Structure formats: structure tokens, C-alpha cells
Amino acid sequence: MRAEQILHPTEAGLYCPPGDFHIDPIRPVPRALITHGHGDHARAGHGSVLATAQTLDIMAIRYGSDFADQRQVADGEIRVGDVTVSFHPAGHILGSAQIAVTPDNGPKIVVSGDYCRRPNPVCAPFEPVPCDIFVTEATFGLPVFHHPDPAHEMVRLLSSMAEFPERPHLIGAYALGKAQRVIALAREAGIDGPIAIHGALQRLCDYHIAQGIDLGELIPATAEDVPAQLVIAPPSAFASPWVQRFRDPVIGFASGWMQVRARARQRGVELPLVISDHVDWPQVIQTIAELAPAEVWITHGTEDGLMRWCELNAIPARPLRLVGYEDEPE
């Protein structure tokens, strides 16, 4: 069986005919396998959903308990139609997984979803999965993207808090994954006091805590005089009246895109923190070299740079040109 017969792009997303399922479909389908809970990968309305237990929980938190007609927890090797699938940690956010698709007769394909190779205190680390075809993202798929150690960015945050002790530090971080990671990194860096969070983060932070992730003392950022110097909020809050309650705040944003200074300026960010839950250029190259697949497929992001690198290294590659995926969704 040829690779294109096992998995190929459609208008609804990646489709596996022998298993009759889609992976991270962008519209409702009868059967969906979901890599993780971000809104550009996990949508409501499918007939059935197969995902990790944590991703299913997160989808229920975000979309309600009736987000799909049927739900199945991914555990071990699972037979779906005429293929076997298995889920492996992706290191992206809590519950994130790569999906390995193994037909009875044909190449093994691993769909990585979104993934990261740096240690992340709020999720399981990336697990390299040997395969014939590796399907990779290329969100930061250009040689210019070399993300610093997140611990270094925490040193910058602490230095700013020490330099401006009277100014609240408002850090924008996406509600699922990034917010909890920034909080956990701040704790590792030595911030022991209360951290204030926007109400939109409360349920997902509570779920991380219930999963055994220590986020320390969190207080709501609702009072007129919030008794915390560090405040975490979703980026959308910075365009709302909510931000006006803080006097002379230091505005920060945690994202891999903060390496691009023009983006920081456009957002009015005074303290850009380059913290990404995606692989940067060295990490994606490291991963491909480590796995040594016979072929690389590229799902979304900056495809041309990675395509050229594969060509120079004699690795067959193809862009899938899937639509409907954002770089870092809110």
C-alpha cells in the first residue's frame, strides 16, 4: 500500500481511507483522531473522537461534555479499520500527542501535530517514534528562529520585576498550555508569592492542578488593587477594558514570535518573552536527523525553508498545504 493510500490531505484535513478517520479535522467528521486540545486542532461536532484522556478532558472543558457523540481514550495500540494507531507524547501542551498510523502492508506514518523538544514542566516530554514518513509542522521553519532557553527568559522577567517593583507585570499567554507553562517556569525561577490570573484561565489552571501540576498560589485578577506583581492573562484581554484597572503596567507577551521585534512593537509589548511550545529551526532539524525517515511531509507553517533543507540533504519531502491551522491559537 502506497503512502498516499494510507494518509492524504482533504478539504476536511488529513484523511486515512483504510481507517476511515481524519486527524485534527477542521470541520465535523464521522471519526476524528485529535493530537491536542488547541482550538485549531480540536473542534467540536465530530461523531466520535479518539484522543488522550487529558485532551478529551480539555475538549470537555472548552466545548462542553457533549462535544462529540462518542469518545474513546487512546491507550496502547488501537485497531481502527485496517490500520493500527498509537499515541505518543509530543511535548507541546498537556495531553498533546503524536499519532502513529501503521497499516498491515505499507509505510508507518507518524503525524506529530504540534510538538516541542525543550523540557516543559506542564506536560510529558516529546518521544521520538521511529517511522517511515514523518509529518512535521514548520511553524518556525526558518533558520532565523533559534529560541532561547525559557529559563533565560524567566531571568529577564525577574530582572524587570526587580527593576520596577511598583509596576504590575501583565504577561500575555495563551489560555491553554502557555499560561500554565509560564506560571510553572516562574515558580521554578523562584517566584513564590501569589500570581494573579485572568478569569479566562481559571478552569484550565484548575485542571492542570488536578492533574498534579504544582502552579503555586493563584489569585483572581479581578480586584481593583490586585495584590500580585505578576499577572497572567490571555492576549485578548489586552484589547479589553480589563487592562485599564492596572496602573502603569509592564506589558509582556510569551511567544516564539516575540523573537520578531516588529511583532512585539505591533502589540505594544515592552517585555517580549521568547517562550514557544513549538520546535524552532534547530529542533526540527534535530528531530528529522534523529528519526531518519524515508520521507518528510510538512503540514503548516513556513514550508519552503524546510523543503529546501530536505532537498539539500537528499530527503524526499512534500508540503501538504493544509488550511485552517494557526501558528499559536487563542
Rank of each mutant, 00 (worst) to 15 (best):
R2A: 02
I6P: 10
I6L: 14
P9A: 00
P9K: 01
A12G: 05
A12F: 04
G13F: 09
G19V: 06
G19Q: 09
H22S: 04
P28N: 03
H36P: 10
D40W: 06
A42P: 13
A44Q: 11
H46V: 01
L56K: 04
D57Q: 12
D57H: 08
A60T: 04
I61P: 02
G64M: 01
D69W: 12
Q72C: 01
V80W: 14
G81S: 10
T84P: 00
T84K: 07
H92A: 12
S96R: 12
I99L: 06
V101K: 07
K108H: 01
S112M: 09
N120K: 09
F126M: 06
P128C: 04
P130D: 14
F134S: 04
F140Q: 05
G141F: 06
G141L: 09
P143W: 03
P143Y: 01
H147G: 14
P148D: 13
P148Y: 10
D149W: 01
E153M: 12
E153S: 07
R156A: 03
L157G: 11
L157V: 14
M161G: 05
A162W: 14
E163I: 00
E163Q: 12
E166N: 11
L170F: 07
A173K: 01
K178T: 08
R181T: 05
V182I: 13
A186S: 15
D192V: 15
G193F: 00
P194L: 11
I195F: 12
R203A: 14
C205E: 09
D206C: 04
H208W: 04
I209S: 14
A210L: 10
I213K: 06
L215K: 00
T222G: 02
E224H: 15
E224D: 15
V226L: 02
V231D: 06
V231I: 15
I232F: 03
P234T: 00
F238V: 04
A239C: 05
V243Y: 10
R247P: 00
R247V: 02
P249V: 04
V250G: 08
F253C: 06
A254F: 02
G256K: 10
M258Q: 13
R261I: 00
A262K: 01
R263H: 14
R265W: 03
G268F: 00
L271I: 03
L271E: 07
P272L: 08
I275T: 01
I275V: 09
V279S: 15
W281A: 08
P282F: 07
P282Y: 05
Q283T: 04
Q283L: 05
I288T: 01
P293K: 09
V296M: 00
H300L: 11
G301M: 04
G305Q: 09
L306G: 03
M307S: 02
I315M: 11
P319K: 07
G324N: 01
Y325I: 05
P329A: 15
